[in-house]
Amino acid sequence: MAEKKTKRRDFLFTATYAVGAVGVGAVVWPMIDQMNPDASVKALASTEVDVSTVNPGNTITVLWRGKPVFIRRRTQEEIVEAKSVKMDELKHPEKDEDRAKNPEWLVMLGVCTHLGCVPLDQKGDYNGWFCPCHGSHYDISGRIRKGPAPTNMEVPKYEFVNANTIKIG
């Protein structure tokens, strides 16, 4: 009899804790989630860029979702150089073909994958980009070659709307 009573009490305690935990969670989650990107931030998902004025060997930088995007029109030598790199030399192996669908145009987030600085164009030991913050060197395909960055610069989702316009996002 006494044992049965304790069990009933135990059940009530456990049920109370469980309901309490769900209740606390339901109140805490909105407080946490309010810090995530809001609807107005998410709405700025894509941007269109006119690239008709970009000459070979030049890079333009555009802002997409608050971040810089590099659009480089590569020269023939640069394309050859980017394609000639052997995969086992790379810290984060990715073929140039996979990074630049149209080899003439390299489109990538101009954000160092180490701690988020903007790498400098045409600097560093690999003829590509160099991050001034902590010394990461990227090649002409935006792949990490030397320094603390763990991965290649990210290629965002993009498409050519027509010959002169790139839509990012």
């Binding site: 946490i32 810090m35 995530n36 990107p37 931030v41 608050g66 180490h114 701690l115 988020g116």
Partner: peptide, 24 residues
């Protein structure tokens, strides 16, 4: 961005800290 070093959830935490896709 130091938080992005955390495996798996790092990027999500950074976006949460920023409230967007960059510091803004």
């Amino acid at each position: 961005n130091l938080f992005s070093a955390i495996p798996l959830v790092g990027e999500g935490i950074v976006t949460w800290l920023w409230g967007g896709y960059s510091v803004d």
